[in-house]
Simulated assay, not measured.
Amino acid sequence: MSHKHFSDLVAGYRRFRAEDWPREHARWAELTHGQKPKVMVIACSDSRVDPATIFGTHPGEVFVVRNIANLVPPFELGGGRHGVSAALEFAVTQLEVEEIVVMGHGECGGVHAAFSHRFAGARPGEGGFIAHWVDLLDEARDRIVKQHGHGPEAIRALELETVRVSIANLRTFPCIPEREAKGLLTIHGAYFAIADGVLHVMGENGQFAPA
């Protein structure tokens, strides 16, 4: 089996080590003592929507969690592994970030899977994990289908709704509203349109407009 793609990554590392590392050496030296990001970004794992690229950030500036369709599950107890919940808990209660950004995006494969129920009934390892994750959007999907049907407009509406659903779920974690009420934490919604490269920001009314 070819290792070309990993070799490309190693080549990229060498460029970083030769160019970026020396240029940012003071920053990296400071980061060896710990991280103090002020912002947490919850984004999709999609390879086209890297938050560091879109927001032009430097190492140490943002604490990032990425998953399928930038989803936050509701606060719940149980036997499942709670990776997103653990990262959220760490960012809010330990790093004490001051702002959280939930960023959705266009052409989201997770949203298409939620909309089409493509993996419904699949076994874990064959699509079942995906199905059980994106079913967080089932209620929103059904509501949007009734309103918009099954066309591109409905897909776009569900992509935007991933942000609203995740923000609502964020607020089921007790540590979130507690800090919001004290003015210690602010939550933002955003949406990156891959087709034109425009970032949209969610206003207090829940609607999105270009930044």
Results as ranks from 00 to 15, higher is better:
P124T: 02
A52P: 02
E161G: 04
R143Y: 03
L184H: 15
I100C: 09
V49S: 02
I187L: 12
E30Y: 08
R15P: 01
H148Q: 13
T93A: 09
G203V: 02
T162R: 01
Y13M: 03
G183Y: 06
K146I: 09
L184E: 12
I68W: 01
K4Y: 15
G60P: 07
A181W: 00
G106K: 02
E19V: 14
L88E: 05
T53S: 15
E30N: 08
G34R: 11
A86H: 07
F119P: 01
R17A: 15
V84N: 06
E98N: 13
L184M: 13
R141Q: 11
L77S: 12
V198P: 00
P22Q: 11
N67C: 04
S166M: 15
D20V: 14
H112G: 01
T53F: 14
V72G: 01
K182R: 15
G121N: 08
A52V: 05
G203F: 01
R66C: 04
R23F: 08
K4G: 10
A131L: 00
G104C: 10
P152H: 13
G151L: 05
V64C: 09
L71D: 03
D50Y: 04
F192M: 05
S45P: 02
T57W: 10
G78I: 08
A168H: 07
K182H: 07
I100Q: 14
T162D: 04
P124Y: 03
M103S: 09
V62L: 15
A195V: 08
R179D: 04
R123T: 03
R27D: 06
D20L: 14
E98M: 10
P73H: 04
F208N: 02
A193Q: 11
S85P: 04
R164C: 05
Y191K: 06
T53N: 14
L137N: 03
I54V: 12
E61I: 05
N169M: 06
T57H: 07
M1A: 13
L77K: 08
